[in-house]
């Protein structure tokens, strides 16, 4: 089964193509990185996959269920997360706990297991001591960390991450990649991550999909080299 399946996807902004002929899959247990120069429509591609934008041609589908045939849980970190509403009246703990709601807890009280997930997630990004702080009082890097903690608390089947390590130092980034790799290899999570950090991440990711500029295109249009299997980093 594929968690994500993108088939011959093209996307146009006002008739101008920005993405053409994109094909790839992300499977359970796979860590895929997506790269491309600035303006290569990487975030646009993610938004097409998630259903936040509609492809102009082709399809992007996300499996409705996980390997255990339960409803697939998605953890998404958008690119601009570090600039989120500074005045939002919420503590770090409240925000990270909200990651558990989509685990069938919209109308139920969080139980001990949920709280354990939240505590572990906050500790994994080094933010447990800051749990009672107001989120607006945090620095950009700290906001990024609690966004990561929020999706680790969700414990999703599929991670869709748009430059999630912006504002983090090298050691923290490596710890984070290690954690993602552990999640994909040990817990079978599917991961699709947009990054500019591809040299550093090579040793952690399974596959690398690069969006490249189409030379014959009249506009800044990006595509993959072809619709064949993208380069494998590790066999």
């Amino acid at each position: 089964m594929h968690y994500i399946e993108v088939k011959d996807l093209s996307f146009y902004y006002d008739e101008e193509p920005v993405l053409e002929n994109i094909c790839f899959t992300v499977d359970p247990g796979e860590f895929v990185m997506l790269t491309g120069e600035n303006g290569a429509a990487k975030s646009t591609l993610l938004r097409n996959i998630l259903g936040l934008l509609t492809p102009s041609k082709g399809t992007a589908t996300i499996s409705p269920v996980n390997e255990r045939n339960e409803k697939l849980a998605i953890g998404y970190i958008p690119q601009q997360v570090a600039s989120f509403n500074a005045g939002f009246p919420s503590t770090v703990l409240e925000l990270v706990r909200s990651g558990r709601y989509q685990r069938n807890k919209w109308f139920k009280k969080l139980d001990a297991e949920d709280k354990e997930h939240v505590e572990r997630a906050l500790k994994s990004v080094g933010m447990w001591e800051m749990r009672n702080k107001k989120i607006g009082e945090l620095s950009g890097g700290q906001k990024q960390r609690i966004s990561l903690a929020r999706i680790f608390a969700t414990d999703p089947d599929l991670f869709v991450l748009d430059e999630p390590t912006t504002g983090m130092d090298l050691d923290s980034r490596r710890e984070f990649y290690e954690l993602l790799k552990h999640n994909s290899k040990v817990h079978g999570k599917g991961i699709l991550m947009v990054t500019h950090d591809h040299e550093d991440i090579k040793q952690y990711a399974d596959r690398h999909i690069q969006l490249v500029r189409k030379e014959d295109s009249p506009w800044r249009c990006f595509s993959m080299d072809s619709c064949k299997e993208p380069s494998k980093l590790h066999s």
């Binding site: 938004r47 998630l50 259903g51 936040l52 409803k71 998605i74 953890g75 998404y76 958008p78 997360v81 989120f84 509403n85 939002f88 919420s90 409240e94 925000l95 909200s98 709601y101 989509q102 807890k105 919209w106 109308f107 869709v160």
Partner: peptide
């Protein structure tokens, strides 16, 4: 009282709310 949690996520970020189903 019933929809407090979904409304919290919706007001925090609509894209996150959408991907959460």
């Amino acid at each position: 009282l019933v929809f407090r949690k979904p409304m919290y996520v919706l007001t925090f970020d609509e894209d996150t709310a959408y991907t959460a189903g």
